[in-house]
């Protein structure tokens, strides 16, 4: 058991260690220029050790060193009250609520569209090209429009962000569910035909259960896209709150450490959401005898 745990953890640990090492090397080389200039102005000469130490303790480094980001993360996640505007948990919760609402809307829309596409020829021909075209537009260009249009009809706050989030997350669900609902083989369909099953029964007894593995794969992609959508949706709102606002504020004031810690928080949030869906997938599929 312990051996297996070690065997499973070893590759991850090695890769993480390699990334951190590369990160430090990059931090030293990117930040040394500024440190040397500072020393020159002060008329002092830096030794090797001093130079390296300098590159890792700047207030606004070009590339924040990992321990600086970790310290900032610890400070803003653990040490601040979660009601404080300086708490990453405060901002994370705002982004998370938009992500989840957007994900739910996007998933529902994606499933509905997929059901329509599979059952209706006109929708099959008419909807899919539009769905694909919708994803060809850069969301960064579209997000401000959505915010402005929704604001003009009196909608602001959570919902516009959720709409952008849904805009990104419905697509993988449509694509996955169309494939999933069409995955039964012709023999499986013929069998239900011999029982004179109607379309409704074919959907519930065959198409939907057969699509489950496809659905979960899509949901994993969809939830990550939802998070991206929610963050992008926070950028044009004038940097009020949320991880996106935190990123924007950080870049206004050159707070690279703050940017990196917000980025890492977003990545951790994405990993957690994908992990939760993976868990739901495992439970559902093993109950269905489809141990996947």
């Amino acid at each position: 058991m312990i051996n297996r745990l070690v065997a499973a953890a070893l590759p991850v640990t090695l890769v993480t260690a390699a990334i951190i090492a590369a990160w430090y090397v990059a931090a030293v080389s990117l930040n040394s220029e500024w440190a040397e200039k500072q020393a020159e102005r002060a008329g002092t000469e830096l030794t090797w050790r001093e130079l390296i130490a300098e590159t890792m303790s700047q207030e606004r480094p070009r590339l924040a060193a990992p321990h600086q980001v970790m310290t900032e993360l610890w400070d803003t996640v653990v040490n601040k009250k979660i009601t404080s505007k300086r708490s990453l948990v405060f901002h994370g919760r705002i982004t998370l609520s938009a992500t989840i609402l957007g994900f739910v809307i996007g998933t529902a829309l994606g499933i509905l569209l997929a059901v329509g596409i599979v059952h209706n020829r006109a929708m099959d021909l008419g909807v899919m090209p539009w769905a694909i075209a919708s994803q060809a537009i850069p969301i960064l260009a579209l997000a401000p429009m959505i915010i402005v249009v929704l604001y003009s009809i009196g909608l602001s706050g959570l919902l516009p962000k959720a709409v952008i989030s849904a805009y990104l997350s419905f697509f993988p669900v449509v694509v996955g569910m169309v494939a999933g609902l069409r995955s039964p083989e012709s023999m499986d369909m013929d069998l239900l035909d011999t029982y004179a099953a109607n379309r409704w029964q074919i959907f519930w007894k065959l198409r939907l259960p057969a699509s489950m593995p496809f659905l979960f794969a899509s949901l994993k992609v969809g939830v990550a896209a939802s998070l991206v959508g929610a963050i992008v949706g926070e950028l044009p709102t004038g940097a009020v709150a949320g991880l996106g606002a935190r990123l924007l504020a950080g870049s206004y004031y050159g707070q690279t450490i703050q940017i990196w810690s917000a980025l890492l928080a977003a990545a951790a949030l994405a990993a957690m959401l994908v992990g939760l869906i993976g868990l739901a997938q495992k439970i559902t599929l093993s109950r269905m005898g489809l141990a996947g």
Binding site: M187, D188, D190, L191, L192, Y195, A196, A197, Q201, K205, L206, P209, A210, M212, M288, G289, L290
Partner: peptide, 23 residues
């Protein structure tokens, strides 16, 4: 059919029950 064509997400009893549910 040529292949058993049992639905993999249904137990044996649930597969046999399938036509009865539909009917």
């Amino acid at each position: 059919f040529q292949a058993a064509g049992l639905y993999p997400w249904r137990t044996i009893a649930a597969n046999v029950r399938l036509p009865l549910e539909i009917m």
